[in-house]
Design a protein around this nucleic acid. Structure first.
Length: 326
RNA sequence: GAAUUGCAGUUCUA
């Protein structure tokens, strides 16, 4: 329904008028709020539904768990966990396992995360992906990287999400060799063509492991480059390549028709601040205003840039504007 | 019968 288009007001209006509010319409509302990050709102709808004497089904519960995850609400997750076990549907849905692994990891409830994972009789690739991300979250890097072999041992085939999770681990511990192995696997599976997320995380991982040449060559071979893969590369330039080269790449990005976002500008401003490139910095400032991309991170980057360029007045100006609005 | 479910991509910061 309307909720899928992100128009909540419209969705709510339609919902209130629905004569036949069935569980599907409730679930759709809850999940949409959760999906757009309104976790608290989603849980309110969850409670409202129960007040209406409709008992939640597996879809309601996983949607509500998504809401819990988005606001990292471990306590309410536990209540739902207890309810699922109590009414005896734990083994009916693989989704429960991955939801709870994910949430307990986000809460850093390590024992609970392990317990859920180990007692899930049915595990699928998403359960494993959530587990790998969880292991990263709690600092169990080796174990996370070993998971690939283990899940294959269970007869499961890794997907894009698996490799994304694994590459994040490599970035975190700076393990370029492991990253290269994963890169090989990704190519073998043909995932670079199928999934845009994989390409950008691969560029990002090489950047973060300090293999900048590799990052560049992956980037150039991507079938499609979006603002996120561009940002990953530009962040690498800002970090590792002190020089004006980054400005050329920024031009090329715009020339290719990719609209920069506030993260892009933060990266370029960082480079300008290292270069002491005041004129370029001013140009960027104007562009940011024109494009309406001023947010608090960009403001910090601007203040930093102006300070490094010894333009204290300009820095102060941005600073005072940010105090006015926040 | 159909419509509603789980993990995962880029900057800075605590």
């Amino acid at each position: 329904g309307y909720a899928k288009c992100g128009s909540f007001l419209e969705a709510q209006r339609v919902f209130e008028k629905l004569s036949a509010r069935n569980i599907v319409s409730w679930n759709a509302m809850i999940n949409r709020f959760a999906e757009y990050g309104y976790g608290e709102m989603a849980l309110q709808w969850f409670e409202r539904m129960q007040c209406d004497d409709i008992s939640p089904d597996a879809v309601t519960l996983t949607s509500s768990l998504k809401a819990c995850a988005s606001i990292v609400d471990g306590v309410r997750s536990q209540e739902i966990h207890g309810y699922i076990v109590k009414i005896g549907i734990w083994d009916h849905d693989v989704f429960f396992g991955s939801s709870f692994v994910d949430i307990y990891a986000k809460c850093s409830w390590i024992a609970d995360m392990y317990h859920v994972f180990q007692t899930s009789v049915v595990r699928d690739v998403v359960t494993w992906n959530a587990f790998i991300s969880g292991l990263l979250e709690v600092g169990q890097h080796e174990r996370a990287l070993n998971s690939l072999d283990q899940m294959r041992h269970e007869g499961l085939c890794p997907n894009a999400g698996t490799f994304i999770a694994l590459l994040k681990v490599c970035s975190c511990i700076g393990a370029p060799f492991r990253g290269e192995c994963i890169h090989t696997e990704i190519v073998k599976e043909g995932l670079l063509e199928q999934d845009a997320h994989v390409g950008s995380i691969l560029v990002d991982a090489y950047v973060k492991c300090g293999l900048f040449t590799e990052a560049q060559s992956v980037f150039e071979m991507l079938p499609a480059r979006d603002v996120i893969s561009w940002n990953a590369l530009l962040a690498g330039y800002a970090e590792h390549m002190p020089g004006e080269e980054i400005l050329q790449h920024f031009k090329r990005m715009k020339f290719e028709g990719i609209a920069p976002d506030s993260i892009t500008y933060s990266c370029i401003l960082k480079a300008c601040s290292n270069l002491g490139a005041f004129n370029e910095g001013c140009e960027l400032h104007k562009e940011i205003v024109t494009r309406g991309l001023m947010d608090s991170e960009v403001k910090n980057a601007l203040i930093d840039m102006y300070s490094k360029c010894r333009a204290i007045d300009d820095a102060q100006h941005v600073f005072e504007q940010s105090r006015m609005t926040s």
